[in-house]
């Protein structure tokens, strides 16, 4: 699956144990993450980013919740402050990459065909089409989908999940795997709240907290410029944190209850 990073030799091999069952049959106990190959490639991608002090953010949401609009507004506001780049993921078309390039920011479009998510190998391939030496923040706009993208580490440092107010306020309860994976949740299109009598932001937050999530909830409207300061401040603080980590020789994966993962004694 991945020939570039030497992942054929895995830590899982150390845990091979033989238990004879009967003649000619043996049981091998492994305890290995099913997506170990993807995770190895993701770690390789993350090393690329850390070498260049780049903060990489993976944007996930339903189709049409305003990921590209959020990026357009962010580019307009921060292009003089930071060097930005975008990797776009869609099943077909260059449309989103064209929208980003029209704002003067480099963008590479991954078209997945029929695949419902980006994986670490697709992102690695995309990295070869971008000049990473001139980037402070790299956004990866994942395929619009609240299910599959949550399962694949791409090498990003942070996950941001968008929930637009034109969707149901119980989306975090319906898609717990996705919303648990978020390091920040953006409540988008809040300028429409006055005409939507069935979306309660407090209920959306309650559904999020019931997933044991303590992450920031950022209500905003990219089109109308409401609530954007908190989003920009979050990006600034995350970039500062990334630079501090790089100086200290550390890296970080998206926050998915790391203690829980440790308690599983997972290998990989």
């Amino acid at each position: 699956m991945c020939d570039t990073c030497g992942c054929n030799v895995t830590p899982g091999n150390r845990h091979l144990a033989y238990k004879p069952v009967n003649g000619g049959t043996s049981a091998v106990s492994v305890l290995k993450k099913l997506l170990a190959h993807n995770d190895d490639q993701a770690a390789h991608n993350r090393a690329h980013f850390d070498t260049r002090s780049i903060l990489t953010i993976n944007l996930m949401s339903s189709p049409g919740s305003g990921k590209t609009a959020l990026l357009e507004a962010t580019i307009d506001a921060l292009r003089d402050e930071f060097r930005l780049a975008v990797i776009e993921g869609d099943l077909e078309t260059e449309n989103d990459a064209a929208r980003i390039r029209a704002r003067g920011v480099p963008a590479y479009q991954i078209t997945t065909g029929s695949a419902c998510h980006l994986d670490a190998h697709m992102v690695h391939e995309a990295l070869h089409h971008l000049d990473l030496s001139a980037v402070d923040i790299l956004f990866v706009e994942n395929v619009g989908n609240l299910v599959c993208p949550a399962s694949f580490d791409l090498g990003q440092h942070r996950n941001v999940t968008l929930l637009s107010v034109t969707e149901g306020d119980d989306k975090p309860a319906k898609y717990p795997v996705m919303f648990r994976a978020a390091d920040a949740v953006v409540l988008s299109k809040i300028d429409l709240l006055p005409v939507l009598d069935d979306f309660d932001p407090a209920r959306a937050e309650q559904c999020l907290r019931q997933l044991a999530s303590t992450v920031p909830l950022l209500p905003l409207s990219a089109r109308k410029g409401q609530g954007m300061t908190a989003w920009y401040d979050w990006l600034r603080s995350e970039l500062a944190a990334q630079r501090a980590r790089v100086s200290a020789g550390q890296t970080v994966k998206p926050y998915i209850q790391p203690d829980g993962a440790r308690l599983h004694a997972e290998v990989g």
Partner: peptide, 28 residues
């Protein structure tokens, strides 16, 4: 979708198990 403490109801909880995606054993 309800990862609250079953005793006190607080949401400051850590997952002990439930997100595993592991290859555990092979019979060869």
């Amino acid at each position: 979708n309800r990862l609250l403490c079953g005793i006190c109801g607080d949401y400051h909880t850590q997952l002990l198990s439930g997100d595993e995606l592991l290859l555990a054993n092979l019979e060869l």
